[in-house]
């Protein structure tokens, strides 16, 4: 039986797959897709064997550098990146946290200078698996579950 594609295939570009449905629009915002002029398909609540339901984003003609794309690991683990050239998947990997998070999340410490000045936040990622991060300013260690997106 022919497998029906849920959205049209991409010739050249990026497919971001296995996004938890409730995190889809966080990912859209983190990647600043509203500012792109490329062709974008955003789908949500698609059936997924692994997740039950999932979100998916396809962007034609756009390739992200690792620093741009890795920031979306802040909202969920297990999102999969596919890089497509001429309808072929050239790279497929699960997105992991970058070493540094610049201006992506807000420090959980209300007495941190980064919550009290018009400035960017900055964290070192201490443990990519557990999502442990350390604020470069107040030096407090916290988990991603304790922080909010900026």
């Amino acid at each position: 039986m022919k497998k029906e594609l849920q959205v049209a295939a991409v010739k050249d570009g990026t497919v971001i797959d296995h996004i938890p449905t409730e995190k889809l629009f966080d990912v859209v915002n983190l990647l600043e897709l509203a500012n792109l002029r490329d062709e974008i398909t955003i789908g949500n609540n698609f059936a997924s064997k692994r997740m039950g339901s999932k979100g998916i984003i396809k962007i034609t003609g756009k390739f992200f550098n690792p620093e741009e794309i890795n920031r979306i690991a802040v909202v969920a683990q297990g999102i999969v990146l596919n890089v497509i050239h001429d309808y072929e998947v050239c790279e497929k990997r699960t997105i992991t946290l970058p070493d540094e998070l610049k201006n992506i999340v807000r420090c959980a410490n209300p007495k941190c200078i980064s919550n009290n000045e018009p400035m960017q936040s900055h964290f070192h990622v201490v443990d990519k698996k557990t999502g442990l991060i350390r604020c470069l300013y107040c030096e407090k260690t916290m988990t991603l579950s304790q922080v909010k997106l900026k």
């Binding site: 200078i113 980064s114 300013y137």
Partner: peptide, 10 residues
Amino acid sequence: RHHLEGAARY
């Protein structure tokens, strides 16, 4: 000296 944490780093 500042009452906020990380002020000197910034």
